[in-house]
């Protein structure tokens, strides 16, 4: 996507988005006994072995790293659900609303740190993983028939399909576009298209504004023009 180099327009880095997503609540099954934790960001626990507890993702990951719990992957991360979502995404130009706002970050964090807790996510033989990546779209269904399709590659496919849709939607922009409504786009997706959309809309806005359309009756003078409400000439930078 265009404009990734412009730090000012992309605003949030991937790490910052991850930081935000780490506050999402997940279920864990602790295997240790620990009293309640009274954090600045809220109270969690107490933790009793084999009793499900709700904690923010960062805490779940921290406990998991120390081998103190297993993370229950959210319901939407099951193979069944993801296959459904993928199907829905492929059948409609609309964005599916079944995935959470931070689905990319959450799944990424869980894959990185709680790989063994995700059903069917264990490394299927390399043979399986490779074809999924290089295959043309049409063949996907054949593979969905095979029992253990990786959750990871499903999510990657969903991402690809969704992103393709976003790109097609962008083509519909024209000079009259003054506001864009975005339904069900996730945090990461929005962050990727933000620099492009922001700048495109701004350019439309700028070239459309009446102040910038030259007035033929006005005698041109040599004074630097001061244009109200319009972006100034940036001489200083």
């Amino acid at each position: 996507m265009a404009g990734q180099s412009d730090a000012e327009l992309s605003l949030f880095s991937a790490e910052e988005l991850e930081f935000i997503a780490e506050d999402e609540i997940v279920d864990i099954v602790p295997n240790l006994k620990m009293g309640p934790l009274n954090f600045i960001s809220g109270d969690f626990g107490p933790f009793i072995p084999q009793i499900v507890a709700q904690v923010p993702l960062w805490l779940a990951v921290a406990l998991k790293k120390r081998g103190k719990c297993s993370i229950c992957p959210p319901q939407w991360m099951s193979v069944d659900k993801l296959t459904q979502v993928l199907e829905a995404e492929r059948n409609s130009q609309e964005m599916s609303e079944q995935l959470p706002f931070h689905y990319v970050e959450i799944s990424r964090l869980l894959f990185d740190h709680a790989h063994d807790d995700i059903p069917d996510a264990y490394m299927v033989s390399i043979k399986m993983v490779l074809p999924c990546r290089i295959m043309p779209w049409g063949f996907f269904k054949c593979f969905a028939l095979l029992s253990s399709v990786q959750v990871r590659s499903l999510i990657e496919d969903i991402r690809d399909v969704r992103f393709h849709k976003v790109e097609t939607d962008l083509e519909a922009f024209n000079g009259r576009t003054i506001a864009v409504k975005i339904k069900n786009l996730s945090a990461m997706e929005v962050n990727i298209v933000r620099p492009f959309i922001g700048r495109a809309l701004q350019a439309f806005y700028k070239h459309d504004s009446p102040e910038l359309i030259p007035d033929p009756e006005r005698v041109p003078d040599r004074r630097p023009q001061v244009v109200q409400n319009a972006p100034r000439r940036q001489l200083r930078r």
Binding site: F19, M34, S41, L59, K68
Partner: peptide, 16 residues
């Protein structure tokens, strides 16, 4: 105190 809960408190503090 328990080093585990201590490190968790520290993490929460760092995030804030």
């Amino acid at each position: 105190a328990d080093p585990l809960s201590l490190s968790l408190y520290q993490m929460d503090l760092d995030r804030t």
